[in-house]
C-alpha cells in the first residue's frame, strides 16, 4: 500500500493512497448532500425512538415521549368512522328490513353497504351479484330454498345452514335412499325420471309419482296437488318443478342425489358481522331480483 494519495495521470483524479500490486483505487467521495442526508437521518431516528414506543427496558418497553400507541390511534380512527356513519347506522339499527326497503334513501345506503359486504363475504360461494354456482344457490332469482322474505333472509344470514358452529343454524337432512336401502335401484330410477319430467314441466302419474308422494313429498312440497312443485321452506326442500338445480338437473344427477344426497353448508355470520351489516346484506340480497 502506498502511503500517500497521489494524482492519477490518466483520469487526473486523486487516489485513496491504497495500492495493491500496482493497482490503485481512485478516491470518489460521496456527494456532500448525500452525506448530510445520511447524518440527518441518523439524528432523526434517534429523536424518533424518543418520541415513539421503542427501547426495551427490563419489565416492558419505553412508551415514547408522545404517548402514541398504535392500538389507541386505531380506536380513534374507528370512533371517527363510526361517527361519520352514525346518522345512517342508527337509522338502520332502529328499523327492521321491510322498513328500510320502504325508505328510498336508507335503502340506497344499505344497498351500497350490502354490495361491498357481499363481495367480501358471500361472493366466493354465491358468486358476484348472487349468480350462484354448483352447490351454491342463485340469490338473484325467485326460487328460494329457505325463503325470500326479508325475515327469512336475515335468519339465514345470521345463523347459516347446517354448520356446526351455530346451534340455531337452519338444518334438515335428506335421506340417503340408496345407501340406506330405503329404495331399490329401480325405484330410484323411476322417481328420478318423475323429478326429471317435473323439472321440464310435466307431472306424470305412474310408479315414479307414487314413490314421490310416499317418500319425498313431505320434504319437497306441502301441497298434495303438486308433488314437488312448491318446495318446503320449513324443511329446506327445494322446489323441483323447474330447471334450477343445485346439484345438476340431468336424470343421472337427480338419481345420484336420491342415492346419497349432497347437503349444502353455509357458515353463520352473526359472530362475524354486526346486526347492521346483516340488515344491509339482507336488503341487498332481497333487491337482487327475487325478494318476496
Amino acid at each position: 500500500m502506498a502511503e500517500h494519495p497521489e494524482r492519477d495521470e490518466i483520469t487526473g483524479r486523486y487516489t485513496t493512497g491504497h495500492e495493491w500490486d500496482g493497482i490503485s483505487e481512485l478516491n470518489t467521495p460521496l456527494p456532500k448532500w448525500w452525506v448530510w442526508v445520511f447524518y440527518i437521518s441518523i439524528g432523526w431516528s434517534v429523536l424518533y425512538t424518543i418520541a415513539y414506543p421503542s427501547w426495551p427496558v427490563m419489565s416492558g418497553f419505553f412508551g415514547g415521549a408522545t404517548g402514541w400507541h398504535a392500538r389507541a390511534s386505531l380506536e380513534d380512527s374507528l370512533a371517527e368512522a363510526r361517527e361519520a356513519r352514525s346518522e345512517w347506522v342508527t337509522q338502520i339499527a332502529a328499523r327492521d328490513v321491510p322498513a328500510i326497503l320502504e325508505d328510498n334513501t336508507l335503502r340506497s345506503y344499505a344497498m351500497r353497504g350490502g354490495e361491498v359486504l357481499f363481495k367480501e363475504n358471500c361472493a366466493p360461494c354465491h358468486q358476484t351479484g348472487g349468480a350462484g354456482a354448483y352447490g351454491y344457490p342463485t340469490l338473484a332469482d325467485d326460487e328460494w330454498i329457505w325463503g325470500g322474505t326479508p325475515e327469512a333472509i336475515v335468519t339465514t344470514i345470521q345463523h347459516g345452514i347446517r354448520n356446526d358452529t351455530d346451534p340455531d343454524a337452519r338444518s334438515s337432512e335428506m335421506y340417503a335412499f340408496g345407501e340406506w336401502e330405503l329404495l331399490t335401484e329401480e325405484e330410484i330410477d323411476q322417481v328420478a325420471q318423475y323429478v326429471y319430467d317435473l323439472s321440464h314441466g310435466e307431472m306424470n302419474a305412474g310408479p315414479g309419482q307414487d314413490i314421490f308422494v310416499a317418500q319425498c313429498a313431505a320434504c319437497h312440497s306441502p301441497d298434495a296437488q303438486s308433488p314437488g312443485g312448491e318446495g318446503n321452506k320449513d324443511l329446506g326442500g327445494p322446489p323441483l318443478n323447474n330447471r334450477i338445480f343445485l346439484y345438476g338437473g340431468t336424470k343421472k344427477d337427480i338419481a345420484a342425489q336420491v342415492y346419497k344426497p349432497q347437503l349444502g353448508v353455509m357458515p353463520s355470520w352473526s359472530g362475524r358481522l354486526s346486526d347492521e351489516d346483516i340488515k344491509q346484506l339482507a336488503v341487498y340480497v332481497h333487491s337482487l331480483g327475487g325478494g318476496q
Binding site: 366466493p124 358468486q127 352447490g135 353455509m266 357458515p267 353463520s268 359472530g271 362475524r272
Partner: peptide
C-alpha cells in the same frame, strides 16, 4: 376460520377457479 364451509375449502384448494373465477 369459520368464514367458509369445509366443502368450499376443499373445492377451492383443488381448483380455486371453480369457486372464484
Amino acid at each position: 376460520g369459520g368464514k367458509y364451509s369445509n366443502e368450499w375449502h376443499v373445492r377451492h384448494l383443488i381448483n380455486p377457479r371453480a369457486v372464484v373465477p
